[in-house]
Amino acid sequence: MWEHWRQDWIYRLLAVGLAIILWIYVTGEQNPTGAKVVRVPLETVNLKEGLVVADRPEDVQVRVEGRKAVINNLLPRDVHAYVDLREAKVGDNLLPVRVEAPEGINIIHINPSQVAVKIDKIEQIQLPVQVSLVGTPAGGYRALEPVIKPSQVIVSGSAAILKSIGRVYVEAQIDQARGNFLAQLPVKVADRDGHPLEEWLSLNPQVVETFIPVVQDMPSKIVAVRPQLSGEVAGGYTIDRVILQPEVVEVFAPYKLLASLDYINTAPINIAGATKNVTVETNLEIPSGVQVGSFPRVRVVVEIKKTDVQAEGTVNPGRAS
């Protein structure tokens, strides 16, 4: 038997080899491999606090390989390309690109395999927010001066990027509007050529309240704002003065309504039992048929003080003749 095996061992090894080759061939036919080049956004991670990325490539090319069924369904978002900035310093840094891919996908080549990343210290500036109107109001209507709250935002970023800012703005869609526009709008930043810069900057706040009066083409008039106080202050106290912001508003209405309109009340302000200043932001009570050309809210400060303890008619000894 041993002699028989020794005589046939070459044939036995050949049979095993043929079987392996046949298995590889059949497997390859059923699950063929393929390659693909994907353009992947380049991200940054582990940047130290107080620093900001001033410049870096937007993406890299990654050549991957795997089963065709998997490769054909692979999307750029499935591949993660990033640069680790843990050891990055202020200035120019040449750092390797790292790539992570789904299971079953092999990374064949990264182009470029190293990228230049510029790091700066974070600086801040305060800039006013402009309003960019998109469209025009309906016929017979017009848009008045916008009101933004807050009117300025803090922009943080590298010194070079901050210097390149052309404007900070919000976009308000008022096409065919027939009434006031009020919305919370995201703040946008563009360079002097109009290109967006949001990726390189941080904003505080990121959203501002935007009010655009859209009024009919009617006669206008400036009228006073009158505080409508409700209740009485506590005993021994009195109202010193009332401060309004704004004190007057522009109103739009037919001539007949304007003729009898001299002021607009605020909503009732409760001062019952007050012993200290009352500060509120309240609405205006706008009469029917009247439109207001400013933000329809008013800040009211009711200053309250103690009354003079000296009774009326009593002669002040210090002033007696």
Rank of each mutant, 00 (worst) to 15 (best):
M1Q: 13
W5A: 04
V16W: 04
I24T: 11
V26D: 13
E29F: 02
T33M: 01
A35D: 00
A35G: 07
T44Y: 13
T44R: 11
E49Y: 12
G50D: 12
G50E: 15
R56W: 06
D59P: 07
N72F: 11
L74V: 06
H80F: 13
A81F: 11
V83P: 12
D84C: 09
A88C: 08
D92S: 14
P96V: 07
G104L: 00
I105W: 05
N106T: 02
I107L: 02
P112H: 02
S113P: 00
V117S: 01
D120T: 03
K121C: 00
Q124N: 07
I125Q: 03
Q130A: 02
V131H: 13
G135W: 13
T136H: 09
A138M: 09
L144D: 06
I148G: 11
V155Y: 04
I165Y: 09
G166M: 00
V168E: 05
Q176I: 13
Q184I: 02
P186C: 14
R192D: 03
H195T: 15
E198R: 15
E198A: 15
V207W: 06
P213T: 08
P213C: 03
V215S: 03
P219A: 05
R226G: 10
A234C: 07
G236D: 11
V242N: 00
P246N: 05
P246Y: 10
V248G: 05
V251R: 15
Y263F: 05
Y263W: 05
I264Q: 04
I264W: 07
A267Q: 08
N270M: 10
T279R: 04
T282S: 09
G289W: 00
V290N: 01
Q291F: 03
F295A: 07
F295I: 04
V298C: 10
K306A: 10
D308T: 08
E312V: 15
R319Y: 12
